[in-house]
Simulated assay, not measured.
Amino acid sequence: MRWGILGAANFARQHMGPAIHAAKGAELVALATSDPVKATGFSDFAPGLRVHSDYDALLADDGIDAVYIPLPNHLHVDWTIKALEAGKHVLCEKPIALKAEDIDRVIAARDASGKFAAEAFMITHHPQFARARELVQGGKIGQLRHVDALFSFNNPDAGNIRNKPDTGGGALPDIGVYVLGAARFVTGAEPVAVTHARVDFEGGVDVFAQFAAEFEGFTYSGLVSTRMQPAQRITFHGDKGILTMTAPFNAGVYDQAELVIETQNGSRTVERWPGVNQYVLQVEAFAAAALHGADYACPLEFSRGTQAMMDMVYAAGR
């Protein structure tokens, strides 16, 4: 699969570009950016990279099969649809939309084009999440009673795109997808209601959100912030055990991927996945789905469910 990247974002240069280059059956062949200096950071690991000066030119490139979109949040829906209409498969950074109903437009464009499109929710491709899903749904910790999720980091830079309201900034759009989507993915359940939410704003964007929800059979609590000491974890608490993921979201960067299982008899088991690159696995899974119709862990319909829950948090916070 021949890939092009729409925009020379730092994240694309540091993580997704190298992942595309390293993935089996994938080749990074093109980049759209008006800044030749930014293109250098990509051609360093992808020699022979074609550089287009604008996004439309990249979409018109017949030598590209798939497009990765790391643009600012408010541009995701429109450029995903444009790429699909140009005949490209599309992997778009999360959040793929800022409202659940906007994902309906993307789903319609996907279906009309016959191409594959997905949100880049990479954690669902990490083996620790497949394992957590197997254990929780398989009854390893008994009946699930409560899920607790936390993700925070400290980013007070007013010039950073995550702190700009006009580009879809905010803690919930940036990292809320993790604490909400992870709980839905592992449990396979959907929220019945968001029962509490406190959402604090600064400069027009949310920088702290603490919320509680009811699922069928269990409760949920979540916290995200872009003004706190970096931390991340998610815990699944059953009536016969506890399963904790200590680096669920930035595995290999924040810390080593580790899953801890504690059960009633006092046993404690630790499973680890050193050296796994979830971005590479995401690219390979995307190609398998796009080219061969393989099952995909995070289809657009799943992403819509996560965004719908985020919309519920915002509504409860107001």
Rank of each mutant, 00 (worst) to 15 (best):
D200M: 08
R131Q: 13
G139R: 05
E258M: 11
F116K: 04
T124Y: 12
A213Y: 01
V177Q: 14
A60K: 14
F211Y: 15
Y68A: 12
V51C: 07
D44R: 14
H146A: 03
H126Y: 06
T187E: 08
F218L: 01
I175A: 10
H89M: 06
F211V: 12
A158M: 06
A285S: 15
G275T: 08
G203T: 10
R227L: 13
P70Y: 03
V199I: 14
V37E: 14
G17T: 05
G169H: 09
M16N: 09
A9C: 01
Q229C: 01
V224M: 07
V51P: 02
H74C: 12
A183G: 02
N250Q: 13
L91P: 08
G168Y: 01
P70L: 08
A247Q: 03
E202M: 12
E101L: 09
A120H: 13
R2P: 04
V205D: 03
L49D: 07
V179W: 01
R227I: 08
K82T: 02
I234E: 05
S152V: 13
L71M: 14
A8F: 09
A57F: 06
G114R: 11
A209K: 10
A19G: 06
P191A: 06
A23R: 04
Q137E: 06
D104S: 13
A109S: 04
I103D: 05
I69H: 02
F185V: 06
F218W: 02
Y220R: 04
A39P: 11
S221T: 14
K140P: 00
Y220V: 04
N277A: 07
D174S: 15
Y55Q: 13
K140T: 14
E214S: 13
D255I: 00
A308M: 09
G176K: 07
S267R: 12
G4S: 11
I261F: 00
P230D: 06
F249S: 05
M228Q: 14
H196S: 14
T263D: 12
E190G: 05
P72E: 11
V67L: 09
L6N: 10
L6T: 07
V186Y: 04
A189Y: 00
E119L: 02
N277I: 07
E301S: 15
E85H: 08
V147W: 06
A109W: 12
A112D: 10
I69T: 08
V260T: 11
D148K: 13
H74A: 13
G238D: 05
F286D: 11
V253S: 10
F121Y: 15
F116L: 06
A132S: 03
F218V: 01
V51Y: 10
G275C: 09
S267Q: 14
G41I: 01
A66Q: 11
V29C: 13
A182G: 09
S303R: 03
G138C: 03
A189K: 14
T235Y: 00
M1F: 11
T306V: 15
M245E: 11
A212E: 15
T244C: 02
A12N: 11
L281I: 03
T269C: 00
R110W: 05
K88E: 12
F151L: 13
V199S: 08
T33W: 02
F236C: 03
F201V: 03
A257T: 05
D174M: 14
V194H: 03
I96A: 15
D44S: 14
A22P: 00
S267I: 00
G138D: 04
A197E: 09
A12M: 07
T195D: 01
Q232W: 05
Y254S: 13
V253Y: 11
A315N: 09
